[in-house]
Design a protein around this nucleic acid. Sequence first.
DNA 1: AATTTTTTTGTAATGCGTTTCAGAAACAAG
DNA 2: CTTGTTTCTGAAACGCATTACAAAAAAATT
Lengths: 336, 336
Amino acid sequence: MSEKRAVTMDDIARLAQVSKPTVSRALNNSPLVKERTRNRVLAVAHEQGYAVNRNAQKLRRKRTNTIAVSLDFGSHQQGHIADPFMFELLAGVSEALGDRNQDLLLCAPKHNDADAFQNILWSRGADGFIVLGQGHREDMLNDFARTGAPLVVWGAGADDAEYCVVGSDNFLGGKLAGQHLLRKGGRRLAFVGDTSFREIGLRYSGLVRAASEKPYDVVTDHVDLHSFSYDAAYEAALRYLDVTEQRPDGLFASNDTVAMAFISAFRDSNIDVPGEISVVGYNDIPTAAYFTPRLTTIRQDIYQAGRVLVAKLMRILDGETPDSALIKTEIIVRQT
Amino acid sequence: MSEKRAVTMDDIARLAQVSKPTVSRALNNSPLVKERTRNRVLAVAHEQGYAVNRNAQKLRRKRTNTIAVSLDFGSHQQGHIADPFMFELLAGVSEALGDRNQDLLLCAPKHNDADAFQNILWSRGADGFIVLGQGHREDMLNDFARTGAPLVVWGAGADDAEYCVVGSDNFLGGKLAGQHLLRKGGRRLAFVGDTSFREIGLRYSGLVRAASEKPYDVVTDHVDLHSFSYDAAYEAALRYLDVTEQRPDGLFASNDTVAMAFISAFRDSNIDVPGEISVVGYNDIPTAAYFTPRLTTIRQDIYQAGRVLVAKLMRILDGETPDSALIKTEIIVRQT
DNA sequence: AATTTTTTTGTAATGCGTTTCAGAAACAAG
DNA sequence: CTTGTTTCTGAAACGCATTACAAAAAAATT
């Protein structure tokens, strides 16, 4: 195995009988280089299997063309991702970044504090950040943004958020869910989810709004659940059924996994869904469509999400300060 | 917004009243630097919010501490990931890399040909590759490996594979599935999946082996299906029921999604699962456990997988040539 | 106290592109 | 055939950290 030295721009320059800057210009499609010269250089470069050393390039240009993406693996427990939605989002972002020739640096879970984020920027590991899921880190993200860090976050923003937020229209989603449940004849609606997350709080608000718009009285209940996992939700459902005096006739869950867990618990308790209780989930994860009964849920346009996140960040990198944005959010009515 | 110049090692050197190399040594915990000096340097560095410029570092060290991970988004269609398994694997790899302080460069789908791979290495964008899912790219990967590219692949390797393969023990998995179906009284077993993928072919072989070990005759059938998506599988199931004369009493699907699609199709055709047909899936995706009926499936230890993939690659980077490896593979018996 | 050895620090070179700026070549105008 | 432009190319500097090697400082030895 030969320890051969990598071919550098100098080598190409020598072989093509031009100077190093000319090679650089040729490779970068600079209009300053004559057509014939460029072709010669390109030919030599290709033939030598030459690829510009990205690190030298990044060093000199002070631009990495790399975006750090932070996935909140918090929802990732015991070997199983509770909510596959984030991964779909990642796929969308990945594709959108690819389209713009940006590399994607995936940030590991433990590197999730402000210092680690800052470090990636200071050390020029990436030009900007896409944070998928703000969780309870709004303060941290605000601090980070205030340092001037180019940052786009998937989630729901506070009115005074210092950073650009892209996300589902959670309030609308909640309202659509509520309207669906009411249309199904619901009078006692229950919401299950951790409303301390802004996104989820908004979904609940939307539900309440939908209820309040009816001329008749609608009771809205709130089942607090501080986990996104199926098992925890299933347990919570059984406990809820045990405790509650009057069962709801409509349930809106903060995500599909929880919705399905509740439906399972209902079924295991001989409660018919959607006969006795209608259920709406959130995210339209793949499973939702073929769960039994097929789950009614709120869908977001994930590809649009990825594209918008990336587009916003690029604008920030260009010095602009784009507004936050909401992604198309609609209800997918199925059996529940 | 001030366009302030980044703080460099020279700045730290000046402020700490030492030379640049001393700063470098201090930051890298070199034993060559005196304790007191190191502390002074570290203090200044911290106070200045200094972070080593990774690009200069990579350039000089000729080592990036970055691993490129290629996800086969081929299984990614119409906005939904058909098989969430790959993403769980990604999470495992991400974690394992994080533990070793390696960065993870996520490669976009379209960058999947040999040239693009090679380019990442030539341009020193990463030190090595982890390919998640070899698909039908064995030849490409062999070529790539032959160039000396540090490469580890998740999948199932040919005997003469030129690269290190880590994967589920697909043959064993298939055998376990077969044994389960036979234990349930199966005499006519059907396998559904695209056996042109080596992994899947092995699962089928395992099933056949299990059947052949019985003293009585077992028929094994093979339903070809060139898609991993739920919808396609559901259609295929209906078509299969339509065409086949004698229905199987045991079904082994190449993955959980397909298994669930078949079960749904069976149910929609008034065939009882597991009463009339037992079913086994593969991967133990989160949904499998709470599908109705709870799906029996083959589970692989995903965290082990991530760790092993990374460990093997690190050894390759150290100049060794580790053997391929199989991951712990077991059957999770549930209702089906 | 002088000398040797060990430990610590500094100087200079290096890794590889990009960019500034000056110079050469090609072309147009007079 | 100059002179003035325009177009193209090259020399040198720069971005920032690491490393080989030399030198200085400190410690150990005689």
